[in-house]
Design a binder for these strands. Sequence first.
DNA 1: CTGAAAGCGCTTACAG
DNA 2: CTGAAAGCGCTTACAG
Lengths: 344, 344
Amino acid sequence: MKEKATSFDIAYLAGVSQSTVSRALRNSPQVNKETRDKVQAIARQLNYKVDKNASNLRKQRSSTLALLLFEDPTTDESLINPFFLSMLGSITRACAQRGQDLLVSFQQLSDDWHADYEDTKKADGIILLGYGDYEDYEEKLDKLLAQETHFVCWGADVEGHPDFTIRSNNRQGGRLAGEHLLSLGHQHFAFIGNASAGSPEFNQRFLGFSDALQQAGIRHDAIAQFNAISTEQAGQLAVQNLLDSGKAVDAIFCASDLIAIGVMQGIQQRGLQVPDDIAVMGFDDIPVASYTTPPLSTIQQDTSLAGEMLVENLLRLVNNQPIETNQIEPKIVIRTSCGTASKG
Amino acid sequence: MKEKATSFDIAYLAGVSQSTVSRALRNSPQVNKETRDKVQAIARQLNYKVDKNASNLRKQRSSTLALLLFEDPTTDESLINPFFLSMLGSITRACAQRGQDLLVSFQQLSDDWHADYEDTKKADGIILLGYGDYEDYEEKLDKLLAQETHFVCWGADVEGHPDFTIRSNNRQGGRLAGEHLLSLGHQHFAFIGNASAGSPEFNQRFLGFSDALQQAGIRHDAIAQFNAISTEQAGQLAVQNLLDSGKAVDAIFCASDLIAIGVMQGIQQRGLQVPDDIAVMGFDDIPVASYTTPPLSTIQQDTSLAGEMLVENLLRLVNNQPIETNQIEPKIVIRTSCGTASKG
DNA sequence: CTGAAAGCGCTTACAG
DNA sequence: CTGAAAGCGCTTACAG
């Protein structure tokens, strides 16, 4: 096996033309079954593999998708958000199932992050994943749109956003959290996480949370809110501020599990108990969530479905087909961080 | 920007030949600076990007590396070992730094897992990552070797293994764990993790552990050993067996953090305390390790360095250069799961 | 320093 | 059902 075999080698051995080899290899129905079998047998024997560069060049298609993970530059670059990691797993699987290769790249928001994947013909489309500040990257999305790049983006359901955004029903997730906390008898609530236009996903979660509490007669401005990006450190800091503020709190809904983990640590450092003194609820259901002390009750985003949907929809875009669904429904996962029995 | 510009378009606009455009774009020193600047300016203006399929086809090089993550089929397929996830992060970064693209794929051991990446010219080389049973995939490695595929593999330092294996000094890591546990005054030791030829990495850790204990006069066969693959469940099960066995134990060294987490849970379920009743030590230092209760003391493998080394060495292989180093040194990370003060 | 030409290995009209 | 031919968009000897 010194030199790699080409379709011409097979043609020669099979006594047919190279065109026929090409057709036979792709199981074209217009080639005689006998010829086809013969060609395929020889190909197997030669351990022949189609040269993707050549076929992509000719077809002007790469059967490759690019995944761009961009992270908030403020986070420690060695630590990737576990939620995205799960996504990566499911995206990889979804691609494999559809015969697509997956090019992966991490980018800081500051970089020329669309990275020319489609321009260079390395990928047919791009999947964008990131928890950056929405306002920062909106402009980049517009640019991609202007360039007619095929892409989908995991993100928030902000208005004016076209089909390319796939997301959780964050507002509904927030509602679920609020209802659960309410059902457990908690009365004084806080939300920890950014709640601005720059973080529409977090904001939606906050709004949903507020929806639920409103049903119970709790006004939106009665909910203490402290900003935090999606890191443990930010959560820890925010809860310290909350505790220092002297506000009465017995239940905190955190915009992400990472925040929730920091919040629980912050609470425990003050000598308070979770959930006895303060209940803590997360969002995402990252793998760590079940290992914390106490195990974290949280709102699960089905990353497996999300990955499928991202890949599926991107492929539709690439093929000029309409997109069908672009939202997944969150589910509550009850562990013990919010308490179990009803409180007085 | 209807049609993508080609080098011919630029040539036309610049009034030079297409060959010159190609050279200018790659900063060839043999083209006049003026010409070069002019060509590059036009290229930028046209938002021109080299078609990778064409250039790869011509160069017979892809500037792409493939990462194959193969997992033990017995593990839950939705959960990827966090250690590998960290590796993935550092490999991605290392590739980006060297201008390489990264194709990612997860495979079950059962699949035709080398997946023809190099055969199809999609990648110049392959990085193999996995915690499968070594004996199962040894044959596949041999096949790759026979096909003269360029690849490196994160794995064990078993004898007869050529350069393509990059690994931690697992034995040294085991020693570190043993010395630490000894220094804390523990006396009755157990090792939880597979200790057979199929898991050479775990086995090396066990051996190193045993080395250290031997220094203190503890015989190898005085160490209780229970098998476990690298999952929480396996760890939990194994420690139950250990506890049921009635053997005296006050310190357990686990072959991986995942196992250690399960072990701590198993211990706590019996109403025993970590580290007061039994100290627990892990291996890997995955992100969760600092979140467990108590935070896990463990042996850290520098995934950042490991990723670098994997990429660097693969590139050397691709370019027929000799490999320099293929081992990283582990480091102990002391948290609280082994106790802090010396025991009576 | 620049250009004309060949060719990387395919796929796909076109013709039969 | 099959073949001859063109061409995808580059890079790189070769010649000047």
